[in-house]
Structures are given as structure tokens and as C-alpha cells.
Design a protein around this nucleic acid. Structure first.
Lengths: 336, 336
DNA sequence: TTGTATGCGTTATCAT
DNA sequence: ATGATAACGCATACAA
């Protein structure tokens, strides 16, 4: 069943059928009705491939997601997909993993599929060695790119993010201002966002006249950022005599690991140990006590990404970089 | 840059270029090399839309996911996307939500896009009123459908699931056999899988000669299945004098709510209250004590879905229904 | 082994 | 307002 079949049955040309299909004003009400009747009763649906070939678009956005099972990215995925579909765009998903090669392959694949735009989810897309970012510059020449939680100054690359540095600084300051002296900083990434957060931690110490103790910086590799590993690591630190009365984490699950450490050693939270997470994920409500965390406004970011993309595809001028301000959500793992 | 440009530059016909592109054996090594050289240095990539139009496929699978932010479905999403992409299929994501209309719209949309097959994720797709399932029967006439965790006997519909009834029965039996007398059953769904689980609970009681007390059946609506609501509900039951010494949940997060109730009332787990979850999600390791849960073999299910889909698309005869057996993962929220 | 010609199902341009 | 026809870029049956 194609447009020729419809045109024959309706006794008109394919051009007229096409006009009806596309709500062209240049068609008389009578013929429109006649054609619509045939379409409705035949169950005809235009062929998306042919349409794509002619228009050179299938109204599709590529979503590059390092890991769809990560709760933060999964939430972002849900927000983005819904917002895009409400604008009549479909989403092609590519879970690339975190290796550079895999990400490059993901971008190439989506380019091959002629998506209208791409969203790069998470700051892991930006490499420290800037030459490794050429694939993005290259891709941006052909397709608009939007980064979720990343900053990358480049034409046709748009960035929507949260001020992680300031958020981390304020969280650390809050700990210091509620009487904590030695804040253990747990982090899992050295990428753009990771660096900003660490800088925020340093800035907080400086602002309160506290000297940084390198001993209090704990890095967890990607495959080691699970609750158990964190707990065991803190137990080990304890054994080594490292002292700390607060934990600030770059991600909620790391903070939960710290809470398990506290439980294992009988430490009271927040009496003897204050704990702050990051992302304000659903996890925060699972723990006992509930976890204070930084809400980095994911929904607002996702909504803005979609709006930006629509604007770009409409040929409008759009802001290259938009920064939201995070907000600390105080719960019972910190003192007042 | 299209196939004509390449053919001119290489001094051959477009047919030859096409043959090279598709690894046809009927092309001499010399010309193949000549053409490849031109392709490589021009950065030419075949137009996916044109290819799709001619072949009537773009090697795309539609993933219908009620909620990408749900951790169980997010994990499934990650497994499926990876497995499909390793077979050179891309995934179009449609997060439909759970209402019937939205799901129908999702299926229609993917039909419009001419996906090669669809995966319906989660048992929420099967309606209790069978007439409401006609949209699936209709869709299956044109496109192979695979259900994740659902059973639906219909031509061209394939089902891959876990034996939830047996799993729930064994979990309940384990509780009874370790001394629990009154098992509170928390559930969140009355769909196919939900019914099976409840039947398993009943069967376990019967097998041990325990009479069912309707008072112990707690249903939580979709928007009420959060940790806090569950905790408050159990506190309320307590106040009403309802007695129970174990909790069996149809989903891990419900079980975590029960653990929060125990914490709030000072009850010891598992001494005074045994708790068992379902799905064996990452959450299980977050709690204190860690949560005993039912591993329903999601990875195996997803892998099998992809294999089945590939077989069907290859025109092979494939099993209509495949059932995996779940496995209880014993942790510290239950007695030995 | 290679080239020619045609079809795939639209949209868009130009007549009428 | 409507129709004829040319793109869109590829795969492929058939011819050479």
C-alpha cells in the first residue's frame, strides 16, 4: 500500500495525496475529504524511509549514553526521551561504554544513521588530552551536538550543565561550618566534571582557612566504585590511622559505601561522621539515616537540552553554554 | 557525496561501487582496491535512508520501555542495547509509560518507523481484559514481537521470562522453613507477572499447611511504591495490631521500605523480622543488613531475547516461549 | 568481471 | 486547485 494505490482509489494524482498528507493549504475541502476517506479506510501509512530519503531527515535524535544502567544516566535517558518524543522526535540509543574508542564508534554510527542531532550524556565524553576530542569537533561540523554535564567550547557544540564546582564547594563549606574538621573526599572520575568538583572541595578548604591533606583524597576507579569497595577502603584507612569526621562524595553510591563503613565500625551518623552524597538520587532515601545530597537539577538540564536542540534544528541562534545552580538537600546524615 | 561521485572518481559504474560496498565476491581485487581508495579518502558513507528505502529495513529494533528510570528496566535496556548492537542492529527507544493508550501509541509509532522487530519490556504490556491486547495481535501480523517477562500466546509473538510463581513460592517457603509464621506480602502490580507471584505466595502457604490471611496482602499502586509510603503503611498496620514476622516483596524497593519500618520501630532484622526482595538489584547491597532477594536472571533473559530476534529475522523457527528459573540470593536480612 | 537500467515511495518544482 | 515529473541515493536483475 503506497501513495500510488491511494491516488488511484481516490481518483487523484499522487501530488494531491501528498498534499493532503502534509496539510498543504492548496487543496479543496472536497478532494481533501475524498482522499482522507480512502486513507482512513485503507490504513495507509506513509513510508518513513522514502520520506527520509526525500527530506534527508527522519526526525531522530541520537542519545549517546555511556551506561544506561547507571541510575543517574537512566533518569536522564527517561527525561530526554520523553521530552524529545513530545516534540515528535524519536531517539536512537547508543550505549557506548566509557572507552574513547567505543565512544568514537558510537558517534560514527549515529552519523551514519543521519540523526538530526546528538546528545552526549555525561561528562565522560571530554578527554583530558584535547587531541582526543577531535572526533567531536569533526562530528559537530555535520550534526549539532549537545553535551549533558560537559563543557566544550566548539562551534555547533552546545553545553548544558550544573555548576559542580560551586555545588561541591558549598557542600564542603556546610560540613566545615557544622563543626567538621577533616573531610574525606571520595571521587570516581578525573574528567571535566570530576576536576570541577575536586576544585570545589579545595576552594572550600581555602575559604575556611583549612589546609588540604592529600591523605583525605580517595579516588575510586570506574570498576571499583561499588559500595563494598568503598567500605573496605575506609576500613583500611582507619587501620592506617587516617582520621576524618566527614565524608563528601562525588556520587551517592560512594557516600552509601561510607555509611556502610560507619555501620561496620559502630560510628554514629551524623554524630561522629557526617556524610554528603551527590546527585540526589533515589538511593538517598534508602539509607538509614537518609542521605544529605546535592541535587544537580537533572530534569531542568534535560528539558533545556531538548529546547536547545529544537531551537538549533529550527535554525535559531541558541546559547552555547547554559549553567544551572545545584542545591543541597539536607537530610539526616549531616548536622544542622 | 554519493555513490555517483565515487563511481566517477574511481572511473567505474555505481554498480561496481555498490558491490565493493557490500563485499560482493564478483569484483576483481584491482578494482576493489581502486574504489576503496577513493571511498577512504573522500570519507564517503552510504546514505542510510536510501539504503533503507531499497531494502525496506534499516536494521533497527524498537525497544518499548514503560519507564527507563526504573532500575530493573534500565538494566534490561543496557543489556538489550549492547546485545543488539553487537549484532549490528540499532535500537529505537520508546518510553511509553504504563497507560494502555500510551503503549498502543508507542507500538504504532515504531510500526510507522518500520523497525525490524520490537521488544516489549516488562509484563505491564499484557492487559487483563484480553480485548485490550488486540493491538499486540495486530502489530504481530507485521512485525515480530518479543515480550520480556510476559506470556502471550499469539503467532509471531515470542516470550522470554522467568518463572516468577515458582520463585515466589520458594522464597515464601524459605521464610516458613526458617521459622516465620506470618509473612506480609507486598506487591505493586496485578499484571501477568504480579498474578503469578501472588499465586506463588499462596502456593507456598498451602504447601506448608498455613492458612492465608488476607490481612497480610498489601498492594501498592504504581505512584505509591516508594520507600516512604511502604514504611508508613507498615507502621499503620502495626498500629492496627496486624502481626507479622516476615516480609516478602515483589520488588526490592518495597522490601527496603519494610526495612525502614523495622528501623523505625527498633525491630531487629532478621531476628524479629525477615525480609526478602525481588530482582536482586544493586539496591540489595545498599541496605544494612544486606537484602536477601530473588535473582530473576535478567541478563540471561535479555541475551535470549536478542538471539530469538535474530533467529526470527533470519527466518528460522524459534521457540515461542522460553522460561528461566530464578534463584534466591541469601543475604543477611533472612535467617539461615 | 563490469555496466545499464529500473524500482523503492516520498516530496517538490513546475506546468496547467 | 491539480497533475506530471524530476529528484533523493542506493541495490540489483539483466545484459554484455
Amino acid at each position: 500500500m503506497n501513495i500510488y494505490d491511494i491516488s488511484k482509489r481516490a481518483g487523484v494524482s499522487i501530488a494531491t495525496v501528498s498534499r493532503v498528507l502534509n496539510n498543504s493549504p492548496h487543496v479543496s475541502p472536497a478532494t481533501r475529504e475524498k482522499v482522507m476517506a480512502v486513507i482512513d479506510d485503507s490504513g495507509y501509512v506513509p513510508n518513513a524511509f522514502a520520506r527520509g530519503l526525500g527530506l534527508n531527515t527522519m526526525k531522530t535524535i541520537g542519545l549517546l549514553c555511556p551506561d544506561a544502567s547507571d541510575p543517574y544516566l537512566a533518569q536522564a535517558l527517561a527525561y530526554l526521551e520523553n521530552a524529545f518524543r513530545s516534540r515528535n522526535y524519536d531517539c536512537l540509543l547508543s550505549c557506548t561504554g566509557k572507552s574513547l574508542d567505543a565512544r568514537i564508534a558510537g558517534v560514527e554510527l549515529l552519523k551514519t544513521r543521519h540523526v538530526d542531532g546528538m546528545v552526549l550524556m555525561g561528562s565522560s565524553f571530554i578527554e583530558n588530552d584535547d587531541r582526543d576530542n577531535d572526533y567531536m569537533r569533526q562530528a559537530a561540523k555535520h550534526i549539532p551536538l549537545i553535551l549533558l554535564n560537559g563543557s566544550f567550547p566548539c562551534e555547533h557544540v552546545y553545553c548544558v550543565l550544573c555548576d559542580d564546582q560551586r555545588a561541591t564547594m558549598e557542600a564542603a563549606q556546610h560540613l566545615l561550618d557544622t563543626g567538621c574538621k577533616r573531610i574525606l573526599y571520595l571521587y570516581h572520575s578525573n574528567n571535566y566534571s570530576g576536576k570541577k568538583k575536586l576544585a570545589g572541595y579545595r576552594a572550600a578548604l581555602e575559604s575556611r582557612g583549612v589546609e588540604l591533606d592529600e591523605e583525605l583524597l580517595c579516588y575510586f576507579e570506574d570498576d571499583k566504585r561499588n559500595v563494598q569497595t568503598v567500605r573496605d577502603h575506609l576500613l583500611e584507612l582507619d587501620k592506617q590511622g587516617v582520621k576524618f569526621d566527614a565524608v563528601l562524595a562525588s556520587e551517592d553510591s560512594l557516600a552509601i559505601g561510607a555509611m556502610k563503613y560507619a555501620r561496620a565500625t559502630g560510628k554514629n551518623i551524623p554524630g561522629e561522621l557526617s556524610v554528603v552524597g551527590f546527585n540526589n538520587s533515589a538511593y538517598c532515601l534508602f539509607t538509614e539515616p537518609e542521605l544529605t545530597s546535592v541535587d544537580n537539577k537533572l530534569k531542568a538540564i534535560c528539558d533545556h537540552i531538548v529546547e536547545t536542540m529544537m531551537g538549533v534544528l529550527d535554525g535559531k541562534e541558541m546559547p552555547q553554554k547554559t549553567v544551572f545552580t545545584a542545591e543541597m538537600v539536607l537530610r539526616d546524615s549531616t548536622r544542622r
